[in-house]
Simulated assay, not measured.
Amino acid sequence: MTDFAKKILVVDDEAKISDVVKSYLEHAGYKVFTAVNGKEAMEGYNDFNPDLIILDLMLPDISGEEICKRIRKNSSVPIIMLTAKVADDEVITGLDIGADDYVLKPFSPRQLLARVAAVLRRTVREPVEDNRKVIFDNGDLAIDTFVHEIRKAGNIINLTPNEYRILVTMARYPKKAFTREELISMALGDDFEGFDRTVDTHIKNIRQKIEDDPKTPKYLVTVHGVGYRFAGEF
């Protein structure tokens, strides 16, 4: 293991699951920290500054949803939820509060390892030759891919990695109407294993952060019967 290995925080109160996941991740070259409850999870997040968090929803003290909410107040670190819940609405709720992906229990460690690799690939910053800063609507919205930063009215906006990639992808093709399938392919990657409603959730979250009135958006507008387009003006 090198000093540059990605750091992963695994949060699960089931020792058997935590030990197996830790073993697989370390074998793949990751540096792994573990936590068995919400208190340890927050301590691990603050102490280790992980590159990705694997977070069980059912913890003995603080729910995984609440931990996700707390982390999302000041960080866009990728979060993969582990859950035995299978209802679409429950998955959407998790995405709504900032989760990047879901893995349903029971799962194979190899499946989880593949999801980890996929999420980390999607959250790598844009290549240097593509870095630039673009200003929309007289400075109301600024996208700077050099420093990986979004500003609204001068204030830094904290987007999750998937939200960032969707916004940047759409802004690169202003006025283009994107289908949900195109956004999944172009922004999230063909290895993304979510479903169409995931895109709707991400769009809603982005609107909450960059629109003056999310119900009447001027940047991410709905194209009925197609999907969405970016309508900002240079």
Rank of each mutant, 00 (worst) to 15 (best):
F4T: 15
F4H: 15
K6G: 15
K7I: 04
D12I: 01
D12R: 02
D19W: 02
Y24L: 04
G29C: 05
Y30E: 11
F33E: 11
F33G: 12
V36T: 10
G38M: 06
E40N: 07
E40I: 08
G44A: 15
Y45I: 02
Y45Q: 05
D47W: 04
F48A: 12
N49Q: 12
P50Q: 02
I53E: 00
I53S: 00
I54H: 00
D56M: 01
L59F: 00
I62D: 06
I62L: 05
E66H: 11
I67V: 13
I67Y: 06
K69R: 10
I71R: 03
I71C: 06
K73P: 04
V77Y: 01
K85G: 07
V86L: 12
D88N: 06
E90A: 12
T93Y: 11
G94T: 06
D96I: 02
D96Y: 04
D101C: 05
V103M: 00
F107S: 10
A117L: 02
L120D: 01
R121L: 01
R121H: 05
T123I: 08
V124C: 10
N131H: 11
I135A: 14
I135D: 12
D137G: 03
G139A: 01
D140K: 15
D144E: 09
H148R: 07
H148T: 08
E149N: 10
K152Q: 04
A153N: 05
G154C: 10
N155A: 06
N155L: 05
I156N: 03
I157S: 08
T160S: 13
R165V: 03
R165T: 02
L167Q: 02
M170C: 09
P174S: 13
K176P: 07
K176Q: 14
A177T: 11
F178I: 07
R180N: 01
L183F: 09
A187N: 00
G194C: 02
N205S: 15
D212N: 04
L220G: 06
T222Y: 05
V223N: 00
G225E: 00
G227T: 02
F230T: 01
F230H: 01
E233F: 15
E233A: 14
F234D: 14
